[in-house]
Amino acid sequence: MKPGIPTWLLLLPAVAYLVLVFGAPLGNTFWMSITEPSLGLQNFETILTDPLYARVYLRTVLVAASVTLLCLGFGYPLAHYMARRGGLAAALLLGICGLCFWISYLVRTYAWTVILGNRGPVTAVARWLGIEPPPVLLFTTTASLIAMTHILLPYMVLTLYVVLARIDPNLIRAAHSLGASRWQSFTAVVLPLSLPAVVSGCLLVFIFCVGFYVTPTLLGSPRDMMISSLIANEIEALLDFGSASALAMMLLAAILVLLTIYDRLVGIDRIMR
């Protein structure tokens, strides 16, 4: 059948919009990174030589990696249970995970300020257990770690679930009939089949985590800044657009590298399942 409207015309609005409202501002930031305050690579030079920046980068990567591992460790059992259990329980759990996508991460961040705050339930339990003084959690890296795990966990669970649910239960039955134990059939059948989803979920969580701003700012320690907070700080506190832009470009480059890996391993277009 001959299409009515030419394909390029269908694509034009979105592409034009992206070029003007997405590409142009990013281009401008790149431009600022090499021209503010004067033309040259000095902003990048500072970032790459100053150990302060290196520490922030390292911390960001460590935090993101920890969050990713936590999400995987919590998310896999949940996704596996949902996929194998099926029925109403799975629907309910799926609903719980789905609900998170509808609730602002600010709301969830706020919830953690209450839970971890010095008048919250964690402190109360610690007191009740006789731990004096109770541990200080709010405004520490631990707090932002917990909250980011909480916020990103649903992404991991859903990514894993989609693949785990598609594994034919007959494969597991077959493994059993061939003499495999529960654990063996899991490690020999389910785990290898779900590995692509594990890779996909981990990369996704890591990418989101590296760029997280709001949650670490509200819950984390001001001394242990992550890269996003550093960028914001350069602008808000120091009005140093050059460094901020250069930092942003470095972050963007890192994200692009990760996305390329993601694309090679999983295929970015698969997000649009």
């Binding site: 979105a14 401008n28 942003a248 994200i255 970015i268 277009d269 649009m272």
Partner: peptide
């Protein structure tokens, strides 16, 4: 397809300072 998906994958802070300036 990939191009159209990137706005979601680029950290908001980068877009935030880009729009800001």
């Amino acid at each position: 397809q990939i191009l159209l998906l990137t706005p979601m994958l680029v950290p908001s802070i980068i877009m935030a300072i880009s729009y800001y300036s």
